[in-house]
């Protein structure tokens, strides 16, 4: 914890591993938000369509 973070250096890309890890987590959360069903959503959708 008291040491500087390691860096990924590939060409012009220079990013610390913790930052890259966090961006990866954000992409996973975003994908899950798109894919996971929202509680109660299906029932409401049908109700709206019926009316």
């Amino acid at each position: 914890m008291d040491q500087p973070a390691g860096y990924l250096h590939a060409g012009f890309i220079l990013i610390s591993w913790p930052n890259l890890f966090l961006i990866g987590i954000m992409l996973v959360i975003f994908a899950l938000a798109l894919l996971l069903p929202f509680p109660g959503h299906a029932a409401d959708d049908q109700t709206e369509k019926k009316s």
Binding site: A33, L34, F38, H41, D44, E48
Partner: peptide, 12 residues
Amino acid sequence: QPYWVGSWVYVF
């Protein structure tokens, strides 16, 4: 809310 709000994207 309109039915399309039933998505996790709107929770952000």
